[in-house]
Design a protein around this nucleic acid. Structure first.
Length: 575
RNA sequence: CGGGAUGUAGCGCAGCCCGGUAGCGCGCUUCGUUCGGGACGAAGAGGCCGGCGGUUCGAAUCCGCCCAUCCCGACCA
């Protein structure tokens, strides 16, 4: 490619709206161009990188025996209604009606589309496992796109699916897929951390995220100080401490003026926050709008993902002060003690207790009376929780379960996610196959996603310097960047440059040839910004020194290589 | 959806308080000089000052509403 003909140009300054480095450099280098919030065009340079990334995906998926296919972006509503996600995923799913007023949507992922195929295609255990993947545009109307390519509303994802006879079969296959993901990230020179994750809207039992640790990440992950445990914030379980061995004491009302927060109460009564219990309130988004009364030890924040899981995956919102008062609780001094669980009309008050609030005895809690708290509240004696679960949010510095290690908080970019889906999709859709004994069985599925653009951005986050991007060789837009410092196109240097460009292309390299009429400074700066690994400078000076000046983007040093030895030199040096 | 910020030429910004016919740098075009780390000179092109409404003799500037973009949070993968 001649630089003079390359569509898209470099910018001298960072676009004002770009805050994170990958967004700045990808835009400045002319890789991407924004169209609307969270919607980007991949310009020729960016698309070249994407294609190289996708080819790495192909290589790894094909090696596993996964077959590439292509499923549609446009889906009919029915298949999403069948799995329940038409209602459960909310406005992130882009919906519309076609001209016949049929409900349609733009797929945000493809479990439904694949399941629909399997409904008629899958009949026998002999077909299993089915391993397939595709790379397709996903559309998600995100509440808040951010960070350039980190979180967007339209993006290409490689998603693979596996269909198995039973759990044992997916358990055998799953590590191979995880290994393929490791290979992919290794090929992109990306350092990733594998963390236990919540499966979120995907459902299913088991899931692992691949995180790139970065300040620009939007996910919170905890890694134990001994490196033995890593989990994202939604999932992380931690040691809440050992409850003191105390006999339950007598309930005792105490006057606690102006003590609406846990900190104030603990301070006023001179007890640690771990000896208090607090209440948090939500309204379930179900037909009866049940009132969710959460009790949790005073020092712990609520993990709403864990809470949702404890309640069978329902959605909810924070309750208003009026709604709290309506069930008889007093905000700031609330307690589940003495509240009526039947709110009438089939509406329930559901008490969800974190295990901390149950295991720790004699906690200070609200009295449902302004300015008063109760000492020595005890779950199961003073009130009956409907659900007891771990619903606490881990924090930096929390202790790991079963070891002395400490949680350290990191920010991360989620670049890949593997899910064991169980029968989350196969069951509602009614997927069936006949086993060796002619018995009807429900298959077990897995799904494995990785975003192309997000991966590209994550690589830039990890591989850049003050001057620009430093692409790993495997995904660089070009292999070589030939910089000609010819004064005129037809002079000695110009002619040699043309010949060199042809020669390197014939040797099989992807070459960007800077034939522009620009000053050397401009060409070098653009070369650094675009970040192609190998830069070859051809100039009167280099020719006088015996050839072409070869420099790797990440090293300051240069080699002078005679033109006729260049190809051998590069084949030797390149990874 | 809540909080905050910003919208003026392709990009980065000033001008806005204090109303009076729109400016700087980069980039772009032409010519000349230059030529190893974002060169120099000369001459140019390019703007519905985000939109709508109001106040005013007069609005980029004051007021109201709306829209868009970014950041934090909610939410989400």
């Amino acid at each position: 490619m001649r630089f003079s003909r390359l569509f898209g140009r470099t910018l001298r300054e960072d676009p004002a709206e770009a805050e994170i480095v990958s967004h700045q450099l990808l835009q400045r280098g002319g890789f991407i161009k924004p169209l609307a919030s969270g919607i980007y065009t991949q310009m020729p340079l960016g698309w070249r990188v994407s294609k190289k990334i996708m080819n790495i995906f192909r290589r790894e998926m094909d090696a596993l025996g996964c077959q590439e296919m292509a499923m549609p972006v446009i889906n009919p509503a029915e298949i999403w209604q069948q799995t329940g996600r038409w209602d459960s995923v909310g406005p992130a799913l882009v919906r519309y009606q076609d001209r016949n007023e049929r409900d349609m949507c733009l797929a945000m992922t493809h479990e439904e589309a694949l399941s629909d195929i399997l409904k008629t295609e899958l009949e026998s255990y002999k077909q299993l496992p089915i391993l397939c993947y595709h790379m397709q545009t996903k559309v998600r109307d995100e509440p808040r796109p951010r960070g350039g390519l980190i979180r967007v509303r339209e993006f290409i994802m490689k998603d693979a699916y596996s269909v198995h006879t039973d759990q044992a079969d997916i358990d055998r296959f799953y590590p191979d897929m995880v290994q393929a993901y490791r290979n992919i990230f290794a090929s992109c020179n990306l350092d990733t951390v594998e963390v236990e994750a919540d499966s979120g809207m995907m459902g299913g039992s088991d899931s692992h995220e691949f995180m790139v640790l970065s300040q620009s990440g939007e996910d919170t992950v905890f890694i134990s100080s001994d490196g033995a445990y890593a989990a994202n914030a939604e999932r992380a379980v931690f040691d809440k401490g050992t409850p003191p061995a105390e006999e339950p004491g007598q309930l005792e009302e105490v006057y606690t003026p102006n003590c609406k927060t846990i900190a104030e109460v603990a301070n006023f009564l001179g007890v640690p926050q771990t000896r208090t219990v607090k209440a948090v309130f939500y309204i379930a988004e179900n037909e009866t709008e049940d009132f969710i009364f959460v009790v949790i030890r005073g020092d712990l924040p609520v993990n709403e993902v864990k809470l949702s899981n404890a309640l069978g995956g329902i959605n909810f919102r924070a309750a208003t002060e009026a709604e709290i008062e309506a069930v008889g609780a007093v905000p700031g001094y609330a307690s589940p003690i003495g509240l009526n669980k039947d709110l009438g009309g089939g509406r329930k008050l559901i008490i969800v207790a974190d295990d901390s609030a149950v295991n720790f005895p004699n906690l200070v809690g609200g009295a449902n009376k302004a300015e008063y708290h109760l000492k020595n509240t005890n779950a199961n004696r003073d009130y009956q929780p409907d659900v007891v679960a771990d619903i606490a949010l881990a924090q930096d510095g929390d202790k790991c379960l079963g070891s002395e290690a400490i949680f350290q908080l990191h920010r991360g970019i989620e670049v890949g996610h593997c899910f064991k889906l169980g029968t989350r999709y196969s069951k509602p859709v009614g997927l069936k196959y006949l086993d060796e004994n002619g018995k009807t069985q429900t298959p077990i599925m897995g799904s494995y996603g990785i975003g192309v653009g997000r991966l590209m951005a994550a690589v830039v986050e990890q591989h850049h310097d003050d001057n620009g991007i430093i692409w790993p060789e495997a995904i660089a837009p070009f292999d070589l960047h030939v910089v000609s410092l010819a004064k005129r196109p037809d002079d000695e240097v110009g002619q040699q440059g043309e010949a060199l460009y042809r020669q390197l292309q014939q040797a099989g390299f992807d070459v960007l040839y800077d034939d522009r009429k620009e000053s050397p400074g401009v060409k070098f700066s653009d070369a650094d910004l675009i970040g192609i690994p190998w830069r070859m400078t051809l100039s009167a000076r280099s020719l006088k020194n015996g050839g072409v000046e070869v420099k790797h983007r990440r090293d300051p040093d240069v080699d002078i290589v005679p033109v006729d030895q260049l190809v051998d030199y590069l084949k030797n040096k390149r990874q």
